[in-house]
Design a protein around this nucleic acid. Structure first.
Lengths: 231, 231
DNA sequence: TATATATCGGTATATTTTTATCGATAATTA
DNA sequence: TAATTATCGATAAAAATATACCGATATATA
């Protein structure tokens, strides 16, 4: 017996700091797919299913079942041949990886069009993020509520933000104040910035920035379409 | 002389249907980076620069200069040793690839929070896309203008949309009507859908869908931060 | 004018990501 | 109970992507 399916070993009972080890080998494409798996798992679950095969998941997401199995292996959840995976276990396993911290607070900076839209984005709550408050410089907005979230002046950042290593700032301010706002955010102790401005931010190494580049997506759409039209 | 820098050949004078061939070998990561190059090239240009090296661009975007040179090679624009590339040429070359068509019309479906935000998104115009109109089912919105764009009832789609192969539909409707709206869009002849709902759309092969998955980004941010905290 | 240096573009290598193959096995069917 | 089948997980191969290397050369400097 050289390779192939093997009866899995008994799971280690203790896994105190498994998070670190679990993260090893985890790649970006896999991480990006996890929320997609969650979506279809939630859907299956809401239809009363309890188990699901990699093939079924793959089909829903236009992926290869092998990809799905490799990704799901990172959760440590084992499937059964001829049956599949227990949906509830998978959901728990994925959530543990992509948002394991007890709670992640999200703060919005810039309550303009896009910012206000994101205040109403249901994905935050669904994925375990708590949108706490918004900050804006417009006096007309300060003090009111948008989508039930209070809007503060940015000078009150220290009073509002409970400093915690895994809080997230969503940056939706105009481009010309993007960097200075980021500086204030970092100064206040927030270490993750979700950047919706088309602006490369200069930040210390200890701060993580993810820039959401809508123009990149448009480019992909444009070229993909052109490609499709050539065949 | 086995390899290394070579005096470039004289450019072919005619290149009628170069688009197709130019697209060959062009990969998704490169396409995604093109708009980023445009951003920094515009910036350099606005500061009065006329030439720029791969190294300068790479530095701005946190990329490897080799990556930049390889990407830029797809434009066909040649740089000069010790000098760099002519910025104006690069801009033209990139724009040709990612949005070569004379004009791309963009139609928004669903003028809710996110939709309205996108109506105000400056990137459209900047990258050569014309946002023509929005469609919504809410009678209170139909007939008014949002960000100077008219809002129509979706039943008027055929009157408003000039059918053209490279038009883009931006889908921002609630999830429960995502698929049916997509069907109407496709029926009207639009072949590219930029999908902001967290919903896998079933579409014919001839239609290109790009799903913008905000939850995926959040996951990436979450895990990247966790990683950073381990070192 | 000779030398030094920045920077190009081509080829080569390394790493990451996807896809294929296959033995093992749990449930199903004959 | 035996054969069939769906599906797993491990290893292997292929494809895509990023990085490294290096000779050539245009400008700058000595």
């Amino acid at each position: 017996m050289k390779n192939g399916y093997k009866e899995p070993d008994i799971l280690e009972e203790y896994s105190e700091s498994m998070e670190d080890s679990q993260l090893k080998g985890l790649r970006l494409p896999t991480i990006r797919r996890f929320p997609k798996y969650l979506r279809v798992l939630w859907e299956f679950s809401s239809h009363g299913r309890e188990v699901v095969s990699s093939d079924k998941i793959a089909h829903k997401l236009n992926l290869d079942p092998i990809t799905v199995r490799k990704d799901l292996a990172f959760t440590g959840i084992l499937g059964k041949p001829r049956v599949g995976y227990t949906i509830a276990d998978l959901i728990e396993g994925i959530e543990k990886i992509i948002n394991s911290q007890s709670q992640t607070n999200v703060y919005l900076f810039g309550a303009g069009n896009l910012g206000t839209a994101l205040l109403g984005y249901g994905g935050f709550k669904k994925h375990g993020y708590n949108l706490i408050a918004a900050f804006d410089s417009d006096p007309a907005k300060i003090g009111i509520k948008l989508h039930d979230k209070p809007v503060y002046g940015i000078s009150h950042i220290r009073e509002v933000v409970e400093i915690s290593d895994h809080d997230i700032a969503v940056l939706c301010v105009p481009e010309n104040v993007a960097q200075e706002t980021a500086d204030i955010i970092i100064e206040a102790g927030i270490k993750s910035i979700w950047n919706f401005t088309s602006n490369e931010l200069k930040v210390p190494e200890s701060v993580t920035v993810l820039t959401e580049d809508l123009a990149s997506s448009l480019a992909v759409l444009s070229v993909t379409r052109k490609r499709n039209s050539f065949k």
